[in-house]
Amino acid sequence: MVERRPRWVDGLLALRNLAVTPFGLRRGAPAGAKRIGIFPVVSASPDRVVMGFDDAHLDFRVVVEVTPDDDGQRVMATTLVRTRNRLGRLYLAAVKPFHRVIVPAMLAQVGRK
């Protein structure tokens, strides 16, 4: 089965890619990188995957961990961002509200699989 993001997330990502093009920001994973969805994989183990990349405006990582829980397993996502300049701070301020909606929606989808 092919994993799919909700359509509204695809729409937001397409809008983001249009908006960042004039600023020379990356529009996705570097060519040839192993990816999960749009994110390049930095490292992976059976219970943790780290995704992300460094760019001129900011560095980011998304860490997804699976741990045992009383009800089975718990899936947790942590996002780490280091801004490098004013553009990075502006970009983070613009995407942060969307990120707070997208990540829980994506994790809820994992729980339904």
Rank of each mutant, 00 (worst) to 15 (best):
A77W: 05
L58W: 04
G52M: 10
V75E: 07
R89Q: 08
Q109G: 13
T83P: 04
F39D: 02
Q109P: 03
T21R: 15
R16L: 12
S43R: 09
W8V: 03
G72F: 09
G32K: 00
L18Q: 14
A19M: 12
G52I: 05
V101D: 06
M1C: 12
P6F: 13
V20S: 03
V20T: 01
E65V: 06
V63M: 10
I102S: 04
R74T: 11
G52Q: 10
V20D: 00
D70V: 14
M106W: 11
A93Q: 08
A31K: 06
L15I: 14
R61P: 04
A33E: 06
R112T: 13
V81Q: 08
V110K: 09
T67E: 06
A31T: 07
V20I: 02
G24K: 05
P104V: 03
R26S: 15
P97G: 03
L25G: 04
W8G: 12
M51N: 01
L13S: 07
R5L: 14
P30K: 03
N17Q: 05
G72E: 10
L12W: 15
K34G: 01
R61I: 07
R84G: 03
G111F: 04
A56V: 11
R112W: 03
A44N: 05
G24N: 06
E65L: 07
H57E: 12
R61N: 09
M1H: 13
V103P: 03
V41K: 00
D71S: 14
F23Q: 11
F23T: 06
N85D: 15
R4D: 14
P22H: 01
A14C: 12
D47Y: 08
P40S: 09
P6W: 15
Q73H: 13
P22V: 01
E65C: 08
G72L: 13
P40F: 00
V20H: 00
F23A: 12
A33Q: 08
V2C: 10
I38L: 02
A108K: 15
G28H: 01
R74P: 03
V62T: 11
G24R: 04
G37Y: 03
R82V: 11
L58M: 10
R112Y: 07
G28N: 09
R16I: 08
V110W: 10
F23V: 02
L87N: 04
E65K: 10
R35F: 02
G32M: 01
T78V: 11
M1D: 14
I36C: 12
A14F: 05
V66Y: 02
R89N: 08
L15A: 15
R84S: 04
V95W: 05
G111Y: 10
R7Q: 14
P68D: 09
G72P: 08
S43K: 09
W8H: 09
R86V: 12
W8T: 05
M51D: 00
A94W: 10
P6Q: 08
T67G: 05
D70Q: 14
A44G: 11
D71W: 11
I102H: 03
V42F: 01
A29R: 00
L80T: 07
A19C: 08
R61H: 09
